[in-house]
């Protein structure tokens, strides 16, 4: 469980985030949505232990977060792959650094994300969507309890985004990982989230937390619960404008 209690963060005189309080239960999928510069990524970096809050506290499973933890993995907007390593070797990077032997897990993850036949390829041979899948596998090899995702699909084209969002939902249902997902996209938030935390403009505060009560697995097709999706989207839209 992630507990953010009255966390705030300033950079010099600039107040990026003011008094955020939020709890994320085990296995929950929470998206943070808000306009550019509202401090969504700052909040994520603080949960990751990359940035100490100037006020307030953040704990994961009761332990205050003071530095990055092995059971908290992160996926960025850029795939951040090492161009000289094969797909497989990129996925194994965290295991190498931790001193784990995880070849079997890597193979399994690549299988799960449809990358098995590309495991010997170098990143530049893959499409943007596939590169981001590799980044996801690299995060999952940490066997994370918590997965933090910072606009992971925003550099991709619209169709690939949808595809990856549906895939991420499936992985979340399979693995039960707690996920905090930063996005600009209402559509993505509604497809993925159990709850959407809407942040106000700078300094960011939580304006409202919207529960998305749409049965899973959700899809973008005709069998989507169009009415529920439309009403949730409209709600988020009105909160953001």
């Amino acid at each position: 469980m992630i507990t953010v209690d009255g966390a705030a963060r300033s950079f010099g005189t600039l107040e990026a985030l003011a008094d955020v309080t939020l709890t994320v239960s085990d296995g929950e999928f929470v998206t943070l949505i808000g306009r550019s510069g509202c401090g969504k990524s700052t909040l994520l970096n603080m949960i990751a232990g990359l940035l100490p809050p100037t006020r307030g506290t953040i704990t994961i499973d009761g332990t205050p977060v003071t530095s990055p933890r092995r059971d908290v993995a992160m996926v960025f907007q850029q795939p951040a792959l090492l161009p000289w390593r094969s797909v497989e070797a990129n996925v194994l990077l965290p295991a190498e650094i931790f001193g784990w032997n995880a070849a079997a897990e890597a193979a399994q993850l690549l299988e799960m994300t449809g990358l098995a036949e590309f495991r010997k390829r170098r990143p530049h041979e893959l499409s943007g969507g596939m590169q981001q899948r590799v980044a996801l596998c690299r995060a999952l090899i940490q066997k994370p309890k918590v997965l933090l995702m910072d606009e992971p699909f925003s550099a991709l084209d619209a169709l690939t985004r949808e595809e990856l969002a549906v895939e991420l939902q499936r992985i979340h249902l399979d693995l039960g990982t707690t996920i905090v997902f930063v996005t600009h996209s209402i559509q993505e938030a509604v497809l993925l989230a159990d709850r959407v935390a809407v942040l106000s403009e700078r300094p960011g505060r939580i304006r409202e937390i919207v529960k998305i009560d749409i049965p899973r697995p959700r899809t973008f097709g005709y069998n989507a619960h169009l009415e529920a999706v439309a009403s949730a989207s409209a709600r988020l839209h009105s909160l953001l404008h």
Binding site: A48, L50, P68, R70, Q78, A80, W84, L93, I97
Partner: peptide, 27 residues
């Protein structure tokens, strides 16, 4: 070394030497 790779190294808490050998030098 690009910012996102430096960030990755921090998230993984990789040591100075690991970061040097696995990321900075090849880059």
């Amino acid at each position: 070394t690009p910012a996102e790779l430096r960030k990755l190294a921090r998230v993984l808490r990789s040591s100075w030497w690991q970061t040097f050998v696995k990321v900075r030098l090849p880059w």
